[in-house]
Design a binder for these strands. Sequence first.
DNA 1: GCAATATGCTTGCATACGCAATCGATTCGC
DNA 2: GCGAATCGATTGCGTATGCAAGCATATTGC
Lengths: 148, 148
Amino acid sequence: MTDQHTTNALRLLQVADDFRAGLASEFSSVHGISVNEFILLLHLERATANRLSRVDLAKRMHVSASTITRMAAPMEKIGLVGRETDERDARLVFVVATDAGREKLSDALATFSKRAGYLFKDRLEEAETDQFAFMLRRLMAGTGDTLA
Amino acid sequence: MTDQHTTNALRLLQVADDFRAGLASEFSSVHGISVNEFILLLHLERATANRLSRVDLAKRMHVSASTITRMAAPMEKIGLVGRETDERDARLVFVVATDAGREKLSDALATFSKRAGYLFKDRLEEAETDQFAFMLRRLMAGTGDTLA
DNA sequence: GCAATATGCTTGCATACGCAATCGATTCGC
DNA sequence: GCGAATCGATTGCGTATGCAAGCATATTGC
């Protein structure tokens, strides 16, 4: 009826949703940011010059460009990100991480790693962890501009 | 800097998001339902008597009870689910899959399986697929009432 | 038994998001 | 060079969702 691939996909979604839900709760109460804001900051950190254009961010995050515009606005207001323009192309508006933004990311990343530890530790052997990483990387093949 | 667990969690979210995004697109255009509506139907199918209370669905789906109320309304209107009450407890309102709902689920499940195939086929060996399933199942330990 | 508490569901309000239209800026065709 | 097409960003509108309040029903404490 349901083949192994189907089962795996269902489990993948389930595990990811569970993890994200727990993360959202702790991010909200401890760091005052959403998971998507965390991911936005993470993309900025890993980008050259700590900045990315809005459409670039949108593509990487699977959201629309308008979402980036609206997500960046309050983050600008509280000083997590700034705004820069391109000298060559006046259409581009970069989102750039500020020092406060990088610090917030660092704090949130500690929470993220802690919860990642909860998820994997005691559930996978060390060799399995490596193998899991290897398999996930292959599943991401063709996905450009990933975070990990 | 970022340990293996952190990397794996990031990749897990990334792969799941990618898969969900592609699925949402095809579900919307081909079957006229959202991914969450599909998952709701899937929960009903796997429940005894093809029905679940709203709070039960909410817990399983990581959404609030109000979301279930609002999600079920249009699905009732187009005949995918029905409404039943409990004789013992008048507070309970069950969401129950109709024949049309089960048929819709069956169609959507074919699409789901096809895309699951795209994701895993040619990327994991058969032995790895089994191992992936095994690892995912351990990662779900403690998560009650799963779909797979 | 009855008041107090808990539970299930719904609804008002606020927030997050996508799509389509729009505007300004750039690039292309010729 | 210049009009046409393209591209990046923003905004209006509709939809989806969570939280908190409200309401009806059950359960519990005494």
